[in-house]
Amino acid sequence: MSADASNRRVVVKSLFGAAGMFAFAIFILPPMYDLFCEITGLGGKTGDAYTAVDVRVDTSREVRVRFVASNNASMPWIFKPEKDSVVVHPGEPTEITYFAHNITDEDMVSQAIPSLVPNNVADYFHKTECFCFENQPLAAGDQADLKLIFIIDPDLPEGVNSVTLSYTIFDITDRAADPIAQL
């Protein structure tokens, strides 16, 4: 094999490698990261809708769940949980609402992002229904009670007695109207 040919092979292989790493960074890393988050509960991200299975309710155990609401930058809505905290038994479905009020004179769309502390219990925090699964539009001046039903898994590790669930709402009005961003 001539030197030119083997140089060409090195170049082609390296460029393929480089292109592969580029694709890896854009197309593989983000979904891999999401998957990783879901598995480990990294960032306290809770999973998608959970189909309730018939589970025992562990009445011997009590877990306090505290609710927190935050507004991201330039999100003018009033957003708060109906109560600060509840004490639940693992396995028992609990319903709670968050109150949202669009105080502006424009129709807006919001998205709530959950975060759970301590974040390694995200795996044991199941939501059968949550307003965070979809974006929430509110017309100018409207208010709404946003519903959340959750079950704490009876397999919740020993020693975890208090969990804090927080939602941050973001203004995604522009994004919701932008077809590219929907991709």
Partner: peptide
Amino acid sequence: FGVKRDAVPGLFTA
């Protein structure tokens, strides 16, 4: 306190 936690928008750290 030995407490240093990043304040990331949309994420809570304890």
